[in-house]
Design a protein around this nucleic acid. Structure first.
Lengths: 194, 194
DNA sequence: ATTGTGCTATAACGCTGTTATCGTAGTCGA
DNA sequence: TCGACTACGATAACAGCGTTATAGCACAAT
């Protein structure tokens, strides 16, 4: 079971990197600072992650895993409409709780980064819980019977658009941002109602 | 009129920076490379823009000015619904025609950058043409009489969300991206129909 | 002609990601 | 128990980054 210990180590490092990112911003996240925070040298980081890209890729996966966990935490036995509402709230809450990590998954903080296969898989997986909720809405007769993945992607685009503008400070207040987020999410959902 | 010549110079530099950004990506846009491309030294750039942030800020404004120009180019005498449709197409076309510049305005390629006052004004100004179109839709009885700025912001969030996911390669093909974009934009607009 | 002023090239500083070199600890075989 | 081999980490270096202090040069004013 050497792999388990290695994965635990990687998780520790990724957590520390996330803390630095949240506290000091993308420019503060350097291999040297991370190594110093962990009490080791950069050599260790390079043997673990091969490059800074590799570290970013691991953080990228972590970000999507968090989203997946939040979406999965929505009770399955609630009414479909309520699950959908909670999903919308969870998405924004997740983004606002660690904005830098969220933005990492959309190019900011790592403009050059292209996610690796596992990272892409994590991104895909994060959509699954919402697809399940959408399917429940279809089964309950709330939504028209279209491709649930398609619907989930459109809903995600709506949520992301509003939250992305909020994080870029294109709205004046948090209240305005919340209102625009709710309006757009509701509009997107309404488009699939039968 | 010394200022005119200075502004022309700045425009030349910003254009060159935009070309490097488009061709080599964010990491390729360095002060040294830009200076080399222009046949001068970095000192000149620093007297013109004070810092790389200043250069980014100028590019940020340029990006929004382009969007403003595209939106203004939509014929004013077309039917409001058609103007709205053209606006949606123009937004995505603008983003796809220079993706790196577009992403610059949402944190990518310059995570630390916070737009200055003039840049923020340019961003605000880019919303005005759409606000005009929305107002026309209200006047024509297509939209409910709500705050046109609010409506325009929600529409922008919709368009941005879909195009942002597309640029982050979260869709498999351009056809899929286009379909999701159209669906979400239509859904957002439909929410304000009377 | 001389002084002064503004602009630019040179070169440097501290930082970055990355890696070659070297030393060391720990394991395996005799 | 001893020696050799292996694997890993610390040190220090390299090229390149944003930025700036220094120094020189061209040109306007007196």
């Amino acid at each position: 079971m050497r792999a388990a210990g290695r994965d635990a180590l990687r998780a520790t490092v990724v957590d520390a990197a996330g803390e630095i990112l949240a506290k000091e911003g993308p420019a503060g996240l350097t291999m040297r600072r991370l190594a110093a925070a962990l009490g080791c040298t950069t050599t260790v980081l390079y043997t673990m992650f091969a490059s800074k890209q590799g570290l970013i890729d691991a953080m990228y996966r972590e970000a999507f895993d968090r989203l997946t966990a939040r979406m999965r935490a929505i009770p399955h036995d609630a009414p479909p409409a309520e699950r959908l509402r909670l999903g919308g709230l969870a998405y924004r809450e997740n983004a606002l709780s660690s904005p830098q990590l969220y933005q990492l998954t959309f190019g900011a903080a790592a403009p050059e980064h292209t996610p690796g296969p596992e990272a892409r898989a994590a991104a895909e997986a994060s959509l699954e819980p919402l697809i399940g909720i959408v399917q429940a809405c279809i089964d309950a007769g709330l939504f028209r019977p279209e491709d649930p993945r398609f619907i989930a992607q459109v809903l995600t685009a709506a949520a992301h658009g509003a939250v992305s503008l909020e994080l870029s400070h294109y709205f004046w207040s948090q209240a305005e941002a919340e209102q625009r987020y709710a309006t757009l999410c509701a509009a997107a959902a309404q488009a699939f109602a039968r």
